[in-house]
Design a protein around this nucleic acid. Structure first.
Length: 640
RNA sequence: GCUGGCGUAGCUCAGAGGUAGAGCAGCUGAUUUGUAAUCAGCCGGUCGGGGGUUCAAGUCCCUUCGCCAGCUCCA
């Protein structure tokens, strides 16, 4: 008799039923309270309208979980769309997905939405939410759907329906009288939206295609409670405060000048001091780990770029050719061909391998004007580039060494959290399957041996070889991709690279491209934001500002400054006839890690009164103690 | 590149057809100062560039350069 007998496993409970139930009914029978708003089944988020299969394992999703938040945000996007159409009925809706920290909804309209509109929409949305509107799902046929949206003139929805696979079921979600084509899932009722905010308006294109209609995108976010929303907004504020373009100006680190050109960076003395410290550290470590440091030109004949394949595959990113005498030249977008030419200069033996060339090499790449962004995306930048020429069976050891060096570097700058990705063979590739497998295994092994966790990006490798990418996490939890290690089977072939093996054969080496910072410009930008401009003592342009209380202490202050300088410390001497309070204020604004105050007490006692950036008092100490204090200060970040 | 917004003193910003403004910075002077702004005076601008409308243009229109946000994490 009981043909439709079903069994569900819901969390730790189970439920038998004589008929098919949807999630809402299941939760109701099991007397779950209203904090359950959906479920995860086979890794997919589902709402109350979903009918699980027999024997389904159902993981309840609670309103205050991360997954629950995705439901809340998606539903908030629908309420936004309703509010926009209620306000401006001629607006056409498109799509409104959940994104990392919130949601957006794209609209088609002649009107330009303003900040004022956002406020109107927010008020209207609050009204809808306060009505405790239920989200009701209805399945409709394809024809019905086309008719329904066609009648409303919702052309974008029609296009979506037409593009859907015929097998796919089509659903709409109703709230009040308003509804949207949507596959869900949604929260049961708007009462779960406790706090939301519309953040900004921006342009976008239908389906991201710039040849299609341009749309207006409204970004917003929603949270389970007001506290989470305000802490998110605070993080956004904090990120704004740390914007490297703003701090770069305030701290006089760098500039980008209209008269020179967009995307071209001027490093001011303060920024250049930091870069110089980083470069010196970089050189020292590379020499220590057996790299040979080289220098190469900024332009080369077009022929070279033809051989390398850049003209064929990378020309969109290269600056146009210039003619010198009768030859065509181009500025370099990459350093590799130059390193290769140095390798080719003279026959190499297997005894020479691995050959490791490293260069702080400036390259120029054409970037579309709209994507330029301070130091993060520039047109001229300097890579910390290196190329390792080795045999296939040396890859594992070499990559292992690169990872050690990379992690040592990143730790030095206070980055201890990273995500690592190994990208494997794509559909189109050069090199043999054996080579790819061997190289990919070497990459994995070198990570496994260090117990470094990584994800596999299947098919995500470049056509010329597999790679490891490393993303670092900054103090605000943002991820930045800097370091990369890439195996290359392509360039050695194109340039006919070879070495003589132990049994006197001519063999082709493999090339490994690697960068730790990626580029000095970008890495510097990340450092500025990571440290909030308050650089640790070893990097800070000035390590201490010496402030005199009055003219009487000038001689002693000069003496202290000379002493510190002779110990290679970076000292800023403020002898101005100003009040101490002003001098301290200016020092704090410049974020120098130490302030040394010299008044009559100090000059009599031959001491300096030390205060750290941020206000911590250290008190009077002697010069040699001060030298030790500054040199030994290894705190990774000064609190801003 | 495209969509939208914005370019006013070194910096941060006000002015929205009728004589270009403020604070900070800078310069000069007074003050000799003890842990986040001493006081006063002065200097500073073809209002991003070019063209137009008007008796009159930061202000309106066109064009050009630059900056900012965004440009499929799919119904």
């Amino acid at each position: 008799m009981l043909t439709n007998f079903m069994r569900y496993y819901v969390g730790k409970k189970e439920l038998d039923s004589e008929k098919k139930l949807n999630l809402g009914e299941i939760f109701c029978k099991l007397e779950f309270d209203s904090t359950v708003i959906g479920a995860e089944i086979d890794g997919e988020l589902q709402d109350f309208y979903f009918f699980p299969q027999d024997e389904s394992k159902i993981k309840p999703i609670f309103v205050d979980s991360q997954k629950g938040l995705n439901l809340i945000r998606h539903s908030t996007a629908h309420i936004l769309a309703e509010a926009v159409q209620a306000t401006y009925p001629d607006t056409k809706v498109t799509i409104g997905p959940v994104i990392e920290n919130g949601f957006y909804y794209d609209f088609y309209t002649d009107r330009t939405f303003t900040e004022n509109d956002l406020e109107i929409f927010e008020n209207k949305m609050q009204e809808i939410i306060d009505n405790q509107t239920s989200f009701v799902k209805e399945e409709i046929s394809r024809d019905e759907a086309l008719k329904l949206f066609g009648k409303m003139g919702e052309v974008f929805k029609e296009e979506i329906i037409n593009d859907l696979d015929v097998k796919e079921s089509i659903s709409i979600y109703k709230q009040d009288g308003w509804f949207d084509l949507c596959r869900g899932p949604h929260i049961p009722n708007s009462k779960y939206i406790k706090s939301f905010k519309l953040l900004s308006v921006a342009g976008s294109y239908w389906r991201g295609d710039e040849t299609r209609e341009s749309l207006q995108r409204i970004y917003g976010t929603a949270f389970f409670n007001k506290k989470d929303l305000s802490s998110y907004l605070k993080t956004v504020e904090e990120a704004k405060k740390r914007d490297h373009r703003k701090l770069g100006k305030e701290l006089d680190l760098f500039s980008i000048n209209d008269d020179i050109g967009p995307g071209l960076v001027l490093w001011h003395p303060n920024g250049a001091t930091i870069r110089n410290i980083i470069e010196n550290y970089w050189r020292e470590k590379h020499i220590e780990t057996n790299y040979q440091i080289i220098y190469t030109p900024h332009i080369a004949k077009a022929n070279l770029w033809e051989t390398s394949g850049h003209l064929e595959f990378y020309s969109e990113n290269m600056f146009s050719q210039m003619e010198i005498d009768t030859n065509k030249y181009q500025t370099k977008p990459m350093n590799c061909p130059f390193h290769i030419m140095i390798y080719k200069n003279g026959l190499k033996s297997y005894r020479d391998l691995p050959v490791k060339f490293a260069e702080i090499g400036t390259v120029y790449r054409y970037e579309r004007s709209g994507v330029l962004h301070g130091l993060f995306r520039a047109r001229g930048f300097t890579q910390d580039d290196a190329h390792i020429f080795c045999s296939l069976d040396q890859i594992e050891k070499e990559v292992s060494d690169v990872m050690d060096l990379t992690i040592e570097f990143l730790n030095k700058f206070g980055f201890s959290d990273y995500e690592i990705y190994v990208s494997t063979k794509p559909k189109k590739y050069v090199g043999s399957d054996d080579e790819w497998e061997s190289a990919t295994n070497s990459l994995k092994k070198s990570l496994d041996n260090k117990s470094l966790k990584y994800s596999i990006d299947d098919g995500g490798g470049a056509f010329y070889g597999p790679k490891i990418d490393l993303k670092i996490k900054d103090v605000l939890g943002r991820l930045w991709q800097c370091s990369t290690v890439q195996v290359d089977f392509n360039l050695p072939k194109r340039f006919d690279l070879e070495y003589i093996s132990s049994n006197n054969q001519r063999l082709q080496p493999v090339m490994i491209h690697r960068a730790i910072f990626g580029s000095f410009e970008r890495f510097f930008g990340i450092l500025i934001e990571h440290y909030g401009g308050a650089f640790p003592t070893w990097l800070s342009p000035y390590q201490i500002r010496l402030l005199t209380v009055s003219d009487e202490q000038v001689d002693f202050a000069n003496e202290v400054a000379d002493n510190l300088k002779s110990n290679n410390l970076r000292v800023y001497l403020d002898l101005r006839n100003e009040k101490l309070g002003l001098k301290i204020r200016e020092s704090e604004i410049s974020k120098v890690p130490f302030i040394g105050i010299i008044g009559n007490n100090e000059s009599e006692n031959k001491t300096i009164n030390i205060r750290r950036y941020g206000g911590e008092q250290i008190g009077e100490i002697k010069i040699d103690e001060l030298v030790k204090l500054i040199c030994g200060d290894t705190s990774k970040e000064v609190v801003s």
